[in-house]
Design a protein around this nucleic acid. Sequence first.
DNA 1: CAAATTTCTGTACCTAGAGTACGGTTTTCA
DNA 2: TGAAAACCGTACTCTAGGTACAGAAATTTG
Lengths: 206, 206
Amino acid sequence: MRKGEKTRERILDIAETSVLQKGFGATSIDELIAEAELTKSGFFYHFSDKNALARALLQRHLERDDEILDDLFRRARELSDDPLHALLIGLKLFSEMLGKLQDGHPGCLVATYCYHERLFDREINELNASGVQNWRQRFVDIFEKIHEKYEPQDEVEVEALADMISTVVEGGIILSKVLKDPKVLADQVLLMRSYVKLLYQPKTVN
Amino acid sequence: MRKGEKTRERILDIAETSVLQKGFGATSIDELIAEAELTKSGFFYHFSDKNALARALLQRHLERDDEILDDLFRRARELSDDPLHALLIGLKLFSEMLGKLQDGHPGCLVATYCYHERLFDREINELNASGVQNWRQRFVDIFEKIHEKYEPQDEVEVEALADMISTVVEGGIILSKVLKDPKVLADQVLLMRSYVKLLYQPKTVN
DNA sequence: CAAATTTCTGTACCTAGAGTACGGTTTTCA
DNA sequence: TGAAAACCGTACTCTAGGTACAGAAATTTG
């Protein structure tokens, strides 16, 4: 039972890299099993078909992503009781983490899958949407706590504000990947942070 | 010479839709020629191979995109001589345009191609990067003019600021597509606009 | 209108990869 | 040690990318 898990993870690792670099349609099973040193029968023992692989890939990706964000913003809350300051610290930590990635961010499966929607069944597309809604809820919770203490300098919906973090990360990953410059992504998160700062900063005398 | 162009455009139209919905690897030539009512020989008369199709697709996409942005911000400049106000108007127009798209934004080839990099030759990847740098230059020009008249409320690099527009659009497209909600993209552009507003707003008494 | 050019069609063929089926073998673990 | 888990080998089907080439039909141009 344990060895099977190991092989399964190895396949998923190789598949994730390939999918992020070539797209799902161009990721061949033959190539995966060659790199995983496995036979085709071995592959189909773990995944009934390519769709099952896609589902497992996304599930694992969303779980890991959740863990990273949990950990990050938990650490941020430990550094400040104030919800606004905690978010600002969290975004700073996030930016630093992204900037430190050698070879840049490998990419996000949610983004790839959204550009493959006609390839997957409804279940996978719904899983993908639930991932985005999960991000939204996470940040809505944070912004609602901030709104209890601070008044925004502009009319904004909390949901749009929450989505902006996901937006900036997804968009930043794309720009960083295309330009082959990890700094772009880190800078974009800092700009998002700058917006949050200005938005909740009390008006001051010039 | 004119009929060939028409067929070529028809192929590109069908291919673009397919690539944005299923990815490049899963877009089959057989399917394209079936929908375009053409034979395989006819396809290869226009494109030497799939890579040539990819290149033509991206070229056309970038040209069209450029025209749309040229037109949009030209109209915005006609409505205000002030560079800041012109940008704010342009972003408003942009948001409205994106919100009006029935069925939502079809997607951006730059984003898709970035998640297919290993599939394409260097030329295509460089073309993709030049597209992003083109956007950067466009908005850097705008922000530099703004900086001549206004002082930002936070330390920001013009390049990062310029990139933020592309970032928000690319990220917004993804969230909108995944959630099947065109409003998300329009709202994200408005939030970007809100940031620009706050960033250059002179400090006022509370 | 006729010639030249462009724009395709038809056929035949090669190769790789997705996926199925299934019997057998080895490895792992309780 | 024995059952279950984790594979291997083989053989086959089908779809798709891509090549090659001969020629037909449509279109444009002189």
